[in-house]
Design a binder for these strands. Structure first.
Lengths: 129, 129
DNA sequence: TCCAAAACAATAATAATTATTATTTTTATT
DNA sequence: AATAAAAATAATAATTATTATTGTTTTGGA
């Protein structure tokens, strides 16, 4: 029997915030953003629910920027750009390693690839000015 | 005039350890490994020198595994595999995004790409058993 | 050898994250 | 609707990686 999972307003709000923000939020960002609607939301709750979403595969950590983990509700493999100036994390459309290449790597190194993450680093349009 | 840079046995030992280890070490690993030969080496010194190597471009941070930053003295762009089981970081030969693709991304998003890092996640040969 | 700059160890301070505990919310059942 | 067990939470404490500070030692030129 699987574990029962009760409904929680806050969990839903956290997940919605992750989905509806394009910024790939950190725990801190989620807390301050959601404080407006849920004044008694605590950071522990944000971390606990992020951990749960990760376990379920509903979100994925895409990068650590300035020591803070940034997450994405778009779990389809895609690139990210990280700005050295402002720390922004942007989605980038484009190809990743294809299945054939991954299969070749798996064979060659005897390992099993479960996911991939291509990060580009540099300066975003804003910060270049 | 450029900044004077005195010689330091420990700095050299730290750099050599990074170069000669295939494990993409963390600060912690470097400390414990080098303690044998330099019993009064301190963690602060390890961090300070890693920071300097990064500024100089002599090493690059390739991943954060279990909260610890892992570094590589091979600054040529190449893939890495990260084992979900044991946290190992392995070098993987293979193509990254080529200059043409990057130029296209730069144009499309108005940004400047300075480096890239492709991470594969999964289970290494050892941990699969 | 003498001196100033650089590097260091030891220690304290930060900052992100995780764990604990007592309270509140949810939900199934009466 | 009332009740009680399970789950979720806030508040708080504890951990852990990293950075900053300070006083001492090392380095290398004069």
């Amino acid at each position: 029997m699987e574990k029962r999972q009760n409904y929680s307003q806050k969990r839903e709000a956290i997940y919605r915030a992750i989905c509806s923000s394009a910024c790939h939020p950190s725990a801190e960002w989620l807390l301050t953003t959601l404080k407006r609607d849920y004044p008694d939301l605590s950071l522990g709750t944000v971390y606990r629910n992020i951990a749960r979403f990760k376990e379920q595969g509903a979100v994925v950590a895409v990068a650590v920027v300035n020591g803070q983990e940034r997450i994405d509700a778009n779990v389809e493999p895609h690139m990210h750009f990280i700005c050295r100036g402002c720390g922004a994390v942007l989605d980038i459309e484009g190809e990743l390693a294809d299945d054939a290449s991954l299969a070749q790597i798996e064979q060659r190194y005897g390992l099993k690839v479960e996911s991939q993450n291509l990060l580009l680093y540099g300066m975003c349009a804003e910060c270049r000015k």
